[in-house]
Every structure is written in structure tokens, then in C-alpha cells.
């Protein structure tokens, strides 16, 4: 498993996709933080804490996992990959762990950067900054979400296989279906894999009214693990049973 994991991490490092996604995620997250902290007239520490949590990392990490796995079919490299690692379930496990690790790295870079820049701007405008302990609290929650959505992205990519369909599906789920559910059925929406459960881990209110609580972090983590297990099982059955012709 170690060699498979190392190989998957090497794959990630040897194409431009990972670097490009880090750049785009960082740029977008910085844009939001800079504009919010510069243009707002009043900024409480709680607002800044939410701002540091609500970055674009989760979505992009999920897309990274989708691209990494579905790309094996898009580039028709899946045959060579399975020849090198014939145990298809171990292969998928290694890929999930690799993209979980990649998610943690990406989230670490983005979260720390926006925290630094946001804190500098808030200080320069004489607003209260977020306490260091609270920053650490945001950081571990972000890293946990990043790891989970990275693995989930691999599961989605392995099940759907068609890279374009999988990417569009994740975007629709994240930007249309789950936000709509937060308005229509918040008690269902909080279990969602792209927004609902991650919001529970990060302890933030993304959508919906003030009266709707997100899941407790522990429960939300279990829900995310459940989503990962569901996609792993479904994709695993499909991957093992299907011929590679």
C-alpha cells in the first residue's frame, strides 16, 4: 500500500493540474478575503473566523479528486494503472488516501495564506483580529474537510468515470442542489456531501435561516465518512466487476 500511495502522490506532483488548482484556489480565496476585509465597515472576530472557513478549497479539492480518478479513463491510462496494481480496491484506496493528503496540503497552503493576509488587513484597519487559538480551530476543521472531500472526489470519479459529467455533477450538486435544499429542506441539506456536512465540521452557517443548525462536527465527520464509504463501495463493485477492454 505504501508504494501505491507514494506512486499516486508522485502522479499528482508530476502534472500541472495540482499546481494549477492550488493557484486558482489561492487566488479566488484571497480575492474574497481581501475584498471582504477591505470593503467591510464593521468586522467582528466571528465574521473573520467564518470568512477563513468559507473558502473555495473544499470544492476545488473535490474536483481535484474527481479529475485524478476519472482522468484515468479520460486519458485511457486506467489499463496501465491496473496492470501495475492489479488489486483494484487497493488501488482505489491508495488514490483516496493520496487525494486526502493532497487536500490537506492544498488547504494548509490556502488557509494559512488567507489567515495571514486577512489578519494583516484587519490589523491595519484597526479591527479586532481572530485569536490564535480560534485560528487553529479553523485550521484543523478546514484540513479535516479537505481530507474528506479529497477522498470523496476520488470515489465520485471512480463511480462516474466520465470526467466532464462528474465535474458538472459535482458543481451542480454544490452550487444548485444543496443550496436549494437548504432553503427547501434544511434538515436534509445538512447531510449533503459538498456543503451540508462540511459546514457541520467547520461549524459555520452557509445557507438557510438562523434557526437551522448544522450537524455537530463529530456527526458531520461520520456523515462524510459514510458518503465516502458509499461511493467507495459502489465504485469498487463497478471497478472489480467490469472488464477493461
Amino acid at each position: 500500500m505504501t508504494s501505491l500511495l507514494r506512486a499516486e502522490l508522485l502522479k499528482l506532483r508530476t502534472t500541472r493540474t495540482f499546481v494549477a488548482l492550488v493557484g486558482v484556489t489561492l487566488a479566488l480565496s484571497l480575492l474574497v478575503v481581501v475584498l471582504s476585509t477591505l470593503l467591510s465597515n464593521a468586522f467582528a472576530p466571528g465574521d473573520a473566523q467564518d470568512l477563513f472557513s468559507a473558502d473555495f478549497t473544499g470544492l476545488f479539492i473535490m474536483l481535484l479528486g474527481v479529475i485524478g480518478m476519472a482522468g484515468e479513463w479520460r486519458h485511457r491510462t486506467i489499463t496501465g494503472t491496473v496492470l501495475a496494481a492489479p488489486d483494484r480496491l487497493r488501488l482505489m484506496t491508495a488514490k483516496m488516501l493520496a487525494y486526502a493528503a493532497a487536500g490537506v496540503v492544498l488547504s494548509l497552503i490556502v488557509t494559512v495564506t488567507i489567515m495571514l493576509v486577512g489578519t494583516i488587513i484587519l490589523s491595519s484597519r484597526d479591527f479586532d483580529t481572530v485569536a490564535f487559538s480560534d485560528l487553529l480551530d479553523v485550521l484543523w476543521r478546514n484540513l479535516l474537510v479537505a481530507a474528506l472531500v479529497g477522498a470523496l472526489g476520488v470515489g465520485i470519479g471512480a463511480l462516474v468515470r466520465n470526467q466532464v459529467v462528474a465535474i458538472i455533477g459535482v458543481l451542480i450538486l454544490g452550487f444548485v442542489v444543496e443550496p436549494a435544499l437548504f432553503g427547501l429542506a434544511p434538515d436534509v441539506a445538512k447531510y449533503g456531501p459538498t456543503q451540508g456536512a462540511p459546514a457541520g465540521i467547520q461549524d459555520i452557517q452557509f445557507f438557510g435561516d438562523e434557526g437551522t443548525d448544522t450537524l455537530a462536527p463529530g456527526v458531520a465527520t461520520l456523515v462524510m465518512l459514510g458518503w465516502i464509504a458509499l461511493f467507495f463501495a459502489a465504485a469498487g463493485v463497478r471497478l472489480r466487476s467490469r472488464d477493461l477492454v
Binding site: K11, G71, T77, T79
Partner: peptide, 9 residues
């Protein structure tokens, strides 16, 4: 149909 990721050396 041996294929390789086009972006990798």
C-alpha cells in the same frame, strides 16, 4: 491502446 498522461514526461 497503451496511453500515457499527455502532461507527464
Amino acid at each position: 491502446d497503451a496511453s500515457f498522461h499527455p502532461g507527464r514526461t
